[in-house]
Each structure stands twice: as structure tokens, then as C-alpha cells.
Computed example of a mutant assay.
Amino acid sequence: MAGGHSVVLVAGEASGDQHAARLARELLALEPGLSISGIGGPKMEAAGVELLSRSEDLALVGVAEVLPKLKVILGAIRGMKRHLKRTRPDLVILVDFPDFNFRIGKAAHKLGLKVLYYISPQVWAWRPKRARQMASFVRRLACVFPFEPEFFEVNAPRLPVSFVGHPLLDIPAQQWDEPLPVPPEAELVGLLPGSRMSEISRLAPLLLEAARCLQQKRPGLHFVMPLAPGLKREQVEPFLNDTPRGLTIVAGRARQVMQEAKLLLVASGTATLQAALAGTPSVVVYKTGAFNYLVARSLIKVEYIAMPNLIAGRELMPELIQGEATPQKVCAEALSLLEDESRRERVIQGLSEVRAKLGGPGASRRVAQLALEMMEE
């Protein structure tokens, strides 16, 4: 295979940065002379991607957060369009992040560049007409959920789609060098209020109040809150007033908490899938600003918001959304999952089925091979 290919790789948000970094490593393993540039975060940079803009500056949750960052976002889009025109890469790989990446994809297509979309935006959940938009500028789509190919076959039949499995399965099982700093034999409950300050400001107080309620019912519980990478305790301190007794805050170590906890109280998002892969029963919470919620509610076309529930086709993880997300309701669902052994067993079995449906490890390598095939076409 001839060397000297160039790829532009564009990802946003922490999970996209993680998956794109793993893909970059696989691409470089298959073609060591490959040049990769793009937009991403620290993991992509560590994997050898030359960053033109940083995804941390572009991360948003909801419509209301766009305006303050609009100048930065538009500047990054203009810069990427100039880069594509100047360098004309052999392949443009877009990772999720639709509102940004659709603009990049259309610009790349207009320049006659090949576009591979990896990790489809959740167009099946809202705005399904965007599937046809994708078909207008995407050469190939690599999906990570088993139900997606059927959706695109119906809604965008001319778009070639491959199910490659989920990249979270590429993360090897881990033995932890250090135990969590909690009392020995403690019955652990993990509190995961999200990775962005907008999520934490709404969900951390809710989860802490639910934890106090749980502690009244089960005094032996101990709570662990892992802070997302890049977050410092002083950033979340304003939202940690009146914390329950028996709370430990740790930097990172979310996977360890997920594996060792008996129960998780978790913000809707990628963490629900990580919790499912850990096999840990969870209560999912979602709360956003009133305007964001009204917009989302009018657009969402699926029955569940937690990915494990969508994959299973039933509610394995109870979902408490907006007005339903009260400390009392979170506490009640958590108690049921802790104390009702038959329900726990059904949930754990269901989470095992979810893992099986996601395919085996190797998603990143399969996408890298697909990318190289596209460059050689």
C-alpha cells in the first residue's frame, strides 16, 4: 500500500475525542506514514493528530448555549473549510457532532472530497429527515448501534451503511492498581452528574439530595462521585452544599466506580452505555433548561432516552426526565434496584444482552480498515 495519504478527522465533546483518538491510533498502525489533522481534544492530540481547533472550545448542550460561543464555532468552521481547500485530504472522517460536522461534510463534498461518517448522529431519535441530508454528502457511514442500518435503509436507502460495533468495547477490562478511597466492604452508590458544568449545576444538587434520602433508608451506603477528566473539585464545589455523610469525590476513575458500585445514579448520555457495559443497575436522570427541554420534547421520536433501553427495547434503566427528576423519585427507584433482588437480576441479565448486541471488540480497527479502503478506491 502506498504511503503518504492524508486524513482530516473532526470530533467534538469528550466521548468523540476518545473514539476518534482510538481510530487515529488504528489508522497509524495500519499506515505509519499517514498524516492526520483536524479538530478534537487532548486524546486526539496525544494520538498524533495535528489539531487546528480544540473541541473543548466548541462543546455545547442545548440551543441556549450556542449564542455565547457562536463566534468561536463559526471561526472553527471557516478555518476547517480553508484547510480542506488548501490540503485536499484523501479522506474526511466526521465523528458524531452533527450541527458542526454537517457543515464540514457539505463543504468537503462540494470540494469533491470523500467523506466517511463514523458514529452516526442520532437522527433516528430526532429530525429523521437529516438522514437524507447525510446521504447527499457522505460516501460511507459506519454505525455503532445494531438498529441503525435498518433505519438508514428505510430513510436513506442510497447511503452505504456498515455496522462496525461499538468502540467502548475496544477498551480492555482493567485491574485497578489502587482501591477507591472508601471504607472497606462499603456498599457503594456512584453519582455521575455529567461532564459539563451546565449538567453538573442542575444534576449534582439533585443527586446529592437523593443520596441523603437513600442514606436515611440505608445508613450503610457510601457514595462516590467521580469528576470527569479536566474538572477540578473547586469548579463543582458551589453545587456540593449540604453533602450527605459518606461521600467521596475522586478525580476521574469513573470506570472503576461503575464496576465496583452496586448502583449508579447517572446523567443521560454516553455514561449510561458505559454503565450497561459494566453491568451495573442504574437510574438515569435528565434535566435541562425549560427552553432546551421544550425544543427537545418536540423533536424526539423515540420511546427512551437512555441508549441501553433503546438497544434492549425495554426499560432496563428507569428514566426520570425534567419534572419527574425529583430527589424523592430518584430515591424510590434506587431503593427498588438495591432491595428487589428479582428486579436486580432481570436488569443485570438485560444489560448482558445489551452488551452482546453491540458486537465484539474491534470497532476502531474495522473503521480504520474501511477508511484505508476508501482512500485506495
Rank of each mutant, 00 (worst) to 15 (best):
E237W: 05
S6I: 09
D96R: 08
M258N: 11
D90H: 13
P157F: 03
A173F: 03
L34D: 12
S162P: 03
A24H: 03
L94F: 01
A290E: 07
M44S: 02
A131V: 08
E185W: 14
M197C: 03
P32Q: 11
G360S: 03
V224S: 10
L316V: 02
A228F: 06
I104L: 04
P238K: 04
N309Q: 04
V10M: 00
D177V: 13
A20S: 02
M307C: 01
S53V: 00
P193A: 11
A20P: 00
M374E: 15
K357R: 15
R343S: 07
L84D: 07
K287C: 02
Q216K: 14
T288V: 15
R196M: 03
E315V: 07
R297D: 10
E185T: 10
G230A: 11
H19Q: 13
A251L: 11
D242Y: 00
K110N: 10
Q259H: 11
L34N: 10
R88Q: 14
E260Y: 12
R314F: 09
L351P: 09
M134N: 02
E31C: 09
L247W: 14
Q349P: 00
S195M: 13
Y118C: 11
T87N: 13
L94N: 05
V49A: 07
G360K: 06
L84M: 04
P244E: 05
Y286S: 05
E50K: 14
T87L: 12
G112Y: 13
G165E: 09
R86P: 01
A2G: 07
P308I: 07
R365M: 08
L214E: 08
Q274C: 02
S55I: 04
K301H: 14
G190I: 13
V354K: 01
G75C: 01
A108R: 05
S120G: 07
E377F: 08
L227V: 12
E315M: 14
F223T: 12
A312G: 06
C143F: 00
P68H: 10
G33C: 04
P205W: 01
Q256H: 13
G323N: 10
A107L: 00
R343F: 04
L203K: 05
G112P: 11
P327Q: 05
A108M: 06
P361V: 13
S364C: 11
P193F: 07
A131T: 09
I348K: 03
A21G: 11
W126M: 10
M317W: 08
A312P: 06
L214F: 09
H19L: 13
C143Y: 00
